[in-house]
Amino acid sequence: MRGRGWAVWLVLATGSAGCTELPFLTKPDDGRRGGYRIKGQAAGPGPLFLAGSGDHPPGQIQRFRDLAGGTGAYIVIGPFAGGAPAGAEARKAFQDLGVTRVDVLDGQDVEADAKLIARADGIYLVGGVAEIAARKLTTYAEPLRSAWRAGAAIGGTSAGAMVWGERLIVKGEAREAVTKGVWAEGGGLDVKVGLAFMPGVLVDPHFNERGRFPRLWVASGATDLTGIGIDENTAAVWTPADHRLTAVGPGTVTLVRHDGGDQGETARVAVLAEGRSADLDDWDVPRVE
């Protein structure tokens, strides 16, 4: 009785997954892990799913579930920025979407966690305090990187999205940015080093909701990186194989690039709405092989 109930449930979940399939991705047929692939491309680094808000809206994490391979994927959750309760919340959100194999990393026992990471199809970081997440993740960088290079999808929300860039803003908002610049000691923005899975960029979530355009404009200019601003309930999906960045969700993804020269202190800016994508070669973001 219980088994039949499960079966019906899974069919329903798979059916709904088909509706939200990302158009530029295709299901793997080679039996390798990591779920969906760029059409016509061999396995390489998996996609990066950068979400702009702290909670787990079903529409959004369903996209991540599909990037990791659908309901059959093995997903591990990194509660580094938000602690154990946030990890449990995220696990429930994935389980509600029909993912049966979900684990929350311990965060202390690096060796045990590394074993889970090595088997994962998707690794998802919850939000919280960006600085704490970045510091804790340094001890996890190697297992995470090898799983990602083998094709696992990497994702995160809010602070869990910021850490994948080359730098991240850990303190200061627009007002501090325009009055003091990137100058932590003087009350301006505090910018720290990220994991740089996505080199050449600086990610800023809750973007338009918190009026963060000025802070990303200032921080990306000062660090000479490409700024990626992500609205709430919205994600920026980077697919390394074709090096494109695609917006998913009702908000926008904003790209900011200062290119110096005789344009002085102006930046090139594009705003991507749902389904639109940008070629990151045009935005001075280095490719990752």
Binding site: A177, V178, T179, F213, P214, W217, V218, L255, V256, Q263, E265, T266, A267, R268, V269, A270
Partner: peptide, 9 residues
């Protein structure tokens, strides 16, 4: 793409 500047006080 547009060109954008941000002016502080």
């Amino acid at each position: 793409p547009a060109r954008v500047s941000v002016l502080g006080p």
